[in-house]
């Protein structure tokens, strides 16, 4: 078994198993705790908990202008690398074929040169994010090891992907193998660090949405 076979075989399946079980474990570990349901009467005319939850999830997509002065970079750069990652992961034709092989579903992709450009923008945005984290006094203070590991786990697949597409640094098969291994590492780390926010944001926002909606307060 060569490196590529190992990467797209046992390594990837192991990583996906850790990802699935770890994510499930972490979600259940949170959601099976007592919920402490709200017992006070809701404000008259307040929306249903479902509407409030939905509103909480949607409203938090965009910050209030009052917080833009200090948070503009975080907001804009956050959007750039999140959208960049989504485009590169889900709209690159080889990725779509890979997913089709695994799960049997597919959709149309974007031209490779567009994906390459988006990949470069994403990489630059991620570098800007880590530079900001390492230089901002607030971010340096509140950062945990998790923040740096999660950054590495996110950046490596982008970097190895760009190298593979550019045929830079090693044989193509080796680059692809390294790319898949970096994705496997991402999946293994996912349940244990802040990458979990990809799932948790729904619950976190919805819970506060319900709390505020119940009170007739604005989020």
């Amino acid at each position: 078994m060569d490196l590529l076979d190992f990467a797209r075989g046992p390594a990837l399946y192991f990583a996906l198993a850790v990802f699935a079980l770890g994510t499930l474990w972490r979600l259940l570990g949170i959601l099976l705790l007592p919920w402490g349901l709200i017992r006070s009467p809701a404000r008259e005319g307040s929306p249903s908990p479902f509407s409030s939850a939905l509103k909480g999830i949607v409203v938090k997509l965009w910050p209030h202008k009052e917080f833009m002065a200090g948070g503009f970079f975080t907001f804009i750069n956050g959007y750039i690398f999140h959208l960049g990652l989504a485009i590169v992961v889900f709209l690159f034709v080889p990725h779509i074929l890979f997913i089709k092989n695994l799960f049997g579903i597919s959709w149309p992709g974007l031209p490779s040169n567009v994906i390459y450009a988006v990949g470069v923008i994403t990489a630059v945005s991620l570098i800007a994010a880590i530079a900001n984290r390492m230089t901002s006094p607030v971010l340096r203070l509140i950062s945990r090891v998790d923040d740096y590991i999660s950054w590495v786990m996110t950046f490596l697949p982008v970097l190895t992907g760009l190298l593979a597409v550019s045929h830079l640094g090693a044989r193509y098969e080796t680059l692809i193998a390294l790319h898949i291994l970096s994705v496997a590492a991402f999946f293994v780390w996912f349940p244990f660090g802040k990458l979990m926010h990809a799932f948790l944001f729904v619950f976190s926002r919805a819970m506060t949405g319900v709390r505020f909606g119940h009170r007739g307060a604005q989020l």
């Binding site: 959601l31 705790l33 402490g36 948070g71 926010h197």
Partner: peptide
Amino acid sequence: FGAIAAAHMESCVRCGMCANACHFYV
């Protein structure tokens, strides 16, 4: 630590946006 407090403890991405909202920090 019920489910709500736990979900909130688990969800922070350390973006620092909250600093901009605190009158003591500002």
